[in-house]
Design a protein around this nucleic acid. Sequence first.
DNA 1: CATTTAATTGAAATTAGTTGTCAAAAGAGC
DNA 2: GCTCTTTTGACAACTAATTTCAATTAAATG
Lengths: 168, 168
Amino acid sequence: MNKSEIPHLLRGDQNPPEKLIVREPLVIDDFKRIIRDMGLKVTKQRMGILKSLNQGRVHVTAQEVFEEVSQEYPDMGFATVYRFLRKLTEKNFVTEVRLGGQAARYELTPKQHHDHITCVRCGRIVEFQNLEIEQLQEEVAVENGFRLTHHVLELYGICGDPNCHQTN
Amino acid sequence: MNKSEIPHLLRGDQNPPEKLIVREPLVIDDFKRIIRDMGLKVTKQRMGILKSLNQGRVHVTAQEVFEEVSQEYPDMGFATVYRFLRKLTEKNFVTEVRLGGQAARYELTPKQHHDHITCVRCGRIVEFQNLEIEQLQEEVAVENGFRLTHHVLELYGICGDPNCHQTN
DNA sequence: CATTTAATTGAAATTAGTTGTCAAAAGAGC
DNA sequence: GCTCTTTTGACAACTAATTTCAATTAAATG
């Protein structure tokens, strides 16, 4: 095993390598930049929504975002959340996930595309990537004379989690 | 070639063999049997809904079924359509297909499982089957500790149909 | 820092799809 | 036909999401 593969704490280094430094204060500026890049004004509401999406659980509903941001800014309406989530989705900063006939769920668009497998009993959502499936989807599209733009792949099953039981 | 394999018209038989007789009136009895098998009473409304699902286009919305059946039974309510579609879906005589945040679409459950590819420009829906993808989905589930119950795979793209343009 | 202007906001009304309620109507066994 | 239970239509209610609009606020400018 090469020395560089040993975690810095075990190696006894004085300081962790630079890339492990957490850059807390920059996050807020990142949000501002995202909003400005969309040609929109920076408001507390929009900052709160981005913060909620960033540090909260993934796959949240608009209602959940609303409730979370409301804690900090009590006088805030649904409409603002829906409006901004729609903009974010249009600009692809956020991805909308729809499961069955339920309310849409949102997540900051991940760098790597992935799909979801959801437990029908406890509601737990696990992300996965499968390039073979992606490739086969392309082939199916071509076979049927389509140029593929996007897809929805949601698997449903029962998970083996020991805590899985009417959690949700 | 055995004589019994030759189509009856070519064989010059007086009457066609029993199993080749087209049983038009029986279709209605099939509907009645389906309804009774579900432990429900046979009503004109339910017969109309099954007839609509059977001979109409596939992938219809509840509204479309309602409108079609209303032609024959003008005093009929949405609720009846929704209620019966739900029952049919529960019993798996009908399959519900949800595309994005749109209204649910229904089709008589096909003998062969299939998924859909939808044109984002004209709305045309094509069915496809891909056993490799099905197999890979099973594998993904197992890898993540799930027992797969079902899945949703919807591909979206632009179709090469010459009539494809704002048809919908 | 004050002024101006256009974007943004919350509240409430509105829409679409679907489900629940309930008295009246209608199957189906006798 | 008669009775019993299910089913029905009309309408209210509900959920998720969108639209409307007057009041507020960000931010460009002076």
